[in-house]
Design a protein around this nucleic acid. Structure first.
Lengths: 122, 122
DNA sequence: CTCTATGCAAAAACTTTGCAGGGAT
DNA sequence: ATCCCTGCAAAGTTTTTGCATAGAG
């Protein structure tokens, strides 16, 4: 994926702050929260949140709230579920397709909460 | 459902504040947020949150975060999905059973986000 | 009587806004 | 040159905590 073109195609200016955020999300294997994402990126939090909002408006990034009451961000990608463990708070991307059909609705985000494989055994 | 016994069975003291919260949740047809739930109930917000936390610990109530960044509460009940519209922010309880079989995981909460029937047509 | 629950006020955590200066195109 | 973007500081939201008093069992 070419982040530079992605940003330009959406009529956003190419700035260091934006590149840094998107690079980090691109290389993450799961959604990242504010602290994880912002860590190491030299940018004011106001700028961070303004950019995230822009990215969400332009459908470059999406986010959801987890159990720890934090927002987690990821690059937009084909629909897949996220599993959030209510015990250990870990977030996993579920690769296997979940098929259900809700007529009339368009589904953009699936969040499952419960006990993950490890915590379920305890 | 007998709220009085429910509270007592969980070793919680029966107070007006608690009765009010649970009565309101019992008669709601969908999850309620802080403002909706607290409205009309004469209780400090600290007490409210402390009670909600107790209820969640005792598995009487569960909650999730919606799109509007607010937490929504409902009485614990058989597993069903919630649909959150990203356009109009409406929350619906989905009655039809969605079965995800994720081996090893226990699923306690299902949240779907997308466009509801109405907003999807626009 | 004992231990839990409550109210008040203050703080904490997270996010947004106003404004003036800086930077991409 | 024009707008968009950024940093800083201040304010807004939602939730939590400390402490002294009130109330349930």
């Amino acid at each position: 994926m070419d982040i530079e073109n992605l940003v330009k195609r959406k009529n956003l200016k190419l700035t260091t702050a934006r590149m840094e955020i998107l690079e980090k999300l691109l290389h993450a294997s799961r959604p990242l929260c504010y602290d994880e994402l912002k860590n190491g990126i030299s940018m004011d939090k106001a700028t961070f949140y303004r950019n995230i909002t822009k990215f969400e408006d332009k459908m470059i990034v999406n986010s959801f709230e987890s159990n720890d009451k934090k927002r987690y961000f990821e690059l937009n990608q084909p629909l897949h579920a996220h599993f959030i463990c209510v015990i250990c708070d870990k977030i996993e991307c579920i690769k296997e397709p979940l098929d259900f059909n809700l007529k009339g609705y368009s589904i953009e985000n699936i969040i499952l909460k419960g006990k993950c494989k490890k915590c379920n055994q305890i």
